[in-house]
Amino acid sequence: MTVESNEYIGMIHSYEIEAGNFTKAGEAASSIKRLLRQLGVDANVIRRVSIAAYEAEMNMVIHSIGGNIQIEISPKAIVFKAVDEGPGIEDVNLAMEEGFSTAKEWARELGFGAGMGLPNIKRCSDEFHIQSEVGQGTYLEAKFIL
């Protein structure tokens, strides 16, 4: 994915997400929220970005083998990207359905696996894009217009 540089003047922050690390889970989303608050972004947008970031981060912690979250802030929009190394989603359309989850029993006992993560991200964002291939990984992008 290349960034269209003519449109983009702003800042990029990126966060490494570790698979299976529940103690740190949510920290990237919390850092993003703090950053947006410091920048004086509208409270409603902060809430929507926070929800999307949290859900994407948790998805990565629970399901992926690890990856990276990136946030690009420009005067016009906030673009959130989550990229992982795998294992990839078998059926993306099914994963987008509310209530569908492949979370294991242990994760469900902790309250995860409601099958609302991806739908939550889509609902909160102005533009949503997801691409996944088994064995390759998942690329998710959510855009928030300012």
Partner: peptide, 17 residues
């Protein structure tokens, strides 16, 4: 109100105010 007690509930509370 929740019966979940692991550390992640704090992240949720923080993110949602």
């Amino acid at each position: 109100i929740t019966v979940q007690t692991h550390v992640n509930i704090i992240a949720i509370a923080t993110l949602l105010d």
